[in-house]
Design a binder for these strands. Sequence first.
RNA 1: GGCGGCGUAGCUCAGCUGGUCAGAGCAUGCGGUUCAUACCCGCAGUGUCACUGGUUCGAAUCCAGUCGCCGCUACCA
Length: 654
Amino acid sequence: MGVTHLSTKTSRGTPSPKTKKTFYITTPIYYPSDKLHIGHAYTTVAADAIARYKRFKGFDVRFLTGTDEHGQKIERRAKEAGKTPQQFVDEIVAGIKDLWSLLRISYDDFIRTTERRHIEVVQDVFEKILKKGDIYKSEYEGWYCVPCETFWLERQLEDGKCPNPDCRRPVELVREESYFFKLSKYQDKLIRYIEENPDFIKPASRRNEMLNFCKSGLEDLCVSRTTFNWGIPVPGDPKHVVYVWFDALTNYISALGYGRDGEEFRKYWPADLHLVGKEIMRFHTIIWPIILMALDLPLPKQVFGHGWLVLEGGKMSKSKGNVIDPVVLVDKYGVDAVRYFLLREVPFGSDGYYSEEALKGRINSDLANDLGNLLHRSLGLVERYWDGRVPTPQAGDTSMADYAREVVKKYEEAMDGFLLSDALTTVFSLVTRCNKYLDEEAPWAKMPRGEEAAASTVLYNVLESVRIVAGLLVPFLVETPEAIWTQLGIDESPRGKRWEEVVAWGGLKPSTRTRKAGPLFPRIEIRTQDAHPSTEGGAGEAGSELIDIERFKELDLRVAKVTAAEAVSGSKKLLKLQLDVGDGIGQRQVVAGIAKHYKPEDLVGKYVVLVANLKPAVLKGIRSEGMILAASHGEDCLRLLTVDGEIPPGSGIS
RNA sequence: GGCGGCGUAGCUCAGCUGGUCAGAGCAUGCGGUUCAUACCCGCAGUGUCACUGGUUCGAAUCCAGUCGCCGCUACCA
């Protein structure tokens, strides 16, 4: 493609086309023992946005992700599934790649630690360091649990026994030969490096932690295992396999062909950014740099430890059943809504809260109300008053142009520090400014007064701002920017165009025929679920809306037997009930607002109707796990629903 | 236990080296508008800036202590 015009203004950090600077960014390689969840998606989407931004800015980007496929856990999971480890991981990796394609992750390379290209480099690296003397053979002493086939550290034991809750059997002290890596030798060098390079570890709080850890003294690291086979054999000593982190971390250079053809390695190493979750900072800022030091290789320029998406109910875990599957979210809300939420909600290095309500809130308030509606209303005006053509601005009002320029500047600052959430906040401040500007200038009022020139300027300024907004969203969203440009009547896509051209004011040509379409982001109706678990509230608006059977089925109604009841102190209305809901559900505690109508002792033994899948609530400090149903008529009349005869507690109601 | 951090409007949080620092967004209420996806715009809040002392002319901002919460404290990825 012929680049004909010279860049008029070279933004900071933007290389000219001739001397294209490189940018190498990595995600962690994920462990394919299970499907990935929203947390993995978060890391990868963030890396993707950074990679897209850097490409936008003209960098020669290399974006690497992959999978870390060895280790005991995989070996076990495969066995349980009756598969070979390789078969097992192949299937999961296929699913991971599908997820990345669903989320439109623009990785340049996907490395798997079971690939030959990786195995060879790991063995090469191991051998080099061994020869150098920084890996040495010694004895590993540990407590071994024979039934569990697992080594434990002294401090992991519980009462000197196996800490596995299903085991708790005595362990035996075992010595075995192992390879050790001399972390201790490089301790001071690493400390100095971290101290002299304040940007090496981000954010600063993590940097301090890591520095602290180093200063407390590094022990040599055991880098081989003999207790399982699913790993890379130690060269020349195949009863050992290479320790997981030594294997995994090496992916960052094996993917570049370190020690082989070498060209890509020379081009892209050292990495500009390893983006990782805060939980694996230590491996990336201590073990990995020391491996590189032992190889006499330069260290990555930055390791950024991002925070987690925290769920309301605590950390995501399979046992809690609260694992959020990104595929489900994308199917439900669309890829751009999910990407937007992930990148907007979690600021800098801190944690962010995930809930579906928060996700819907973001979609509605930012994407639908502010951005989508802005485009919709301004194109509506263009259709009504300008016959669907971009109006011609008059000189004079530069307020929006000035504001947009300011936004672009702040956006660049945020992005250059990888502050994705801040960058998005800035972009949306321009959207908000546009909405306000439209209201202030009210072009729909100017037109009837014959102030067409002024109104044209206003509309142009808004449309042009929206054009730039779409451009700034290119790294974050994968469909919306082009959708906006299309509606603005621009035939090109903002993606792949040069940054300077996209963000320069005045790109939108007057007279362009616009193509207004449906809402960019439809509002999501948030069903207001009354979490009040008492029986108050009565009938509500009867007959206001018809529902289908599926909607009704969402309720889990059960017969429950009242086993105990007592008044709630400090409340005239509330009773605390213990319910027997059968074998399936068991005991439930419910707080019900029926004290004015029932005495506790009259309730015990009654069969009532429980909404079993209502979100738990806390009333007067007492947890209520559902609600029981009652009919009421005015203030004074309330009767509990019950069943017409004997039926086992827990029986379903339909 | 050791080191570090946090505790500011209902919610999520900004507030760097002390003097418009008492703020933003969301939620709430009221008003405006009706070009628009019940949208947008404006106004209004309430806050003992965890608690107790201290330094200072003056502290959310510095110091000490108390209470509460969180992170790190290595061989599980």
